[in-house]
Write a protein that binds this DNA or RNA. Structure first.
Lengths: 194, 194
DNA sequence: GTCTATATTGTGATAGAC
DNA sequence: GTCTATCACAATATAGAC
């Protein structure tokens, strides 16, 4: 399989379109024809860049995870303390959700995990691991500085926080109204930060 | 559209099978043929009971919401205080998830909300409203008794709790391991209960 | 790289016999 | 109520010309 860093500009455009489609319709909800129409080339041309759907989406998730890691690095550079970092993390999800109530790519694919090809499922798993690992480090740091409640283990708190954010997008979509990830994240943090 | 209380035994079996398929594969991920094979009758016979997919799933969600309300009533009968009620509520989700990592029907459909027919989207919205309303009453009661943190409004806390539970199923599925709704619910509550 | 054409399979849905 | 047969269409995917 190709690595996302060595693909052509047109393949990049394909990924851009497919990413939004995954966020809106899910893996089984979008087709090569949807992508082709939005990109402005024909269906077989999409197959030229990504022979199989499984590969297209796997590369898409790889790129998504990579960009997420870059954003996490950005947060580390902008905020020194755990509480600010966790708020900035929630803002990442909010930024996705405010654009037409788009879901996190891996939130959507996580829900569909049962019917996902192996390659894709593996990349989704990796995304969540990366996020929980990073959150665990931030939470543990906050606990050492007595800025975050030490009532629960860092890893447990980290995972619960991630679940609340992912869930807020699903629930927010299911109800026409409701709060977004920023609000739910703030609520969660208000019970955990000192 | 038919009401779920006045359908034949065979239609009930169809709903049973379709419900699990929705939880595993989502609305766009299952087909009338999948249902037919598992029920043991042919595809057109499914259409006889539910002419359109939209109707089948709408009735399915109606029944799901109804059963959920019955379970909520059961919790009120078994537990008097808010903390116990909230723990029992999380156990409801855990009960679903431990069966082959099944998702909440409306967690799955909420993620797919963008590509859902109107009838179905309406029923999903109703499910979430019912749950948040009930949770809000329980949380408010707990706050009055000083058993639940009054730092946040009852409704806000209720919605965050629901999000954490729905999210725990999505994330739990996306990672091969991870905690289930019971663990995540417990973590959330440990920060909120006195 | 892109296209037309096509293979193959699957989908929701209907007609009409039993 | 269930079936066989069939429709119209959409899906992933490939062959081969340009």
């Amino acid at each position: 399989m190709k690595h996302f860093s060595e693909i052509s500009p047109m393949a990049e455009r394909v990924l851009d379109v497919a990413e939004v489609l995954v966020q809106q319709q899910g893996y089984s909800g979008f087709s090569y024809d949807d992508v082709a129409r939005q990109v402005g080339i024909k269906k077989p041309s999409i197959h030229h860049h990504f022979p199989k759907k499984e590969e297209l989406v796997a590369v898409l998730v790889q790129r998504y995870t990579h960009r997420f890691r870059a954003a996490l690095l950005g947060i580390e550079g902008q905020h020194a303390k755990a509480p600010e970092r966790l708020i900035a993390y929630a803002a990442l999800f909010e930024g996705t959700f405010v654009k037409d109530r788009r879901l996190c790519v891996c939130g959507m694919l996580g829900a569909e995990a049962d019917s996902l090809p192996g390659l894709v499922a593996g990349e989704v798993e990796r995304f969540f691991k990366v996020n929980i690992d990073w959150l665990t480090l931030v939470v543990a740091d906050g606990q050492r500085a007595a800025l975050v409640s030490a009532q629960c283990a860092a890893e447990v708190l980290a995972e619960a926080f991630l679940c609340a954010l992912e869930g807020s997008m699903v629930v927010g979509r299911g109800m026409r109204s409701s709060r977004g990830p920023a609000d739910v994240g703030k609520t969660f943090l208000s019970t955990v930060l000192s």
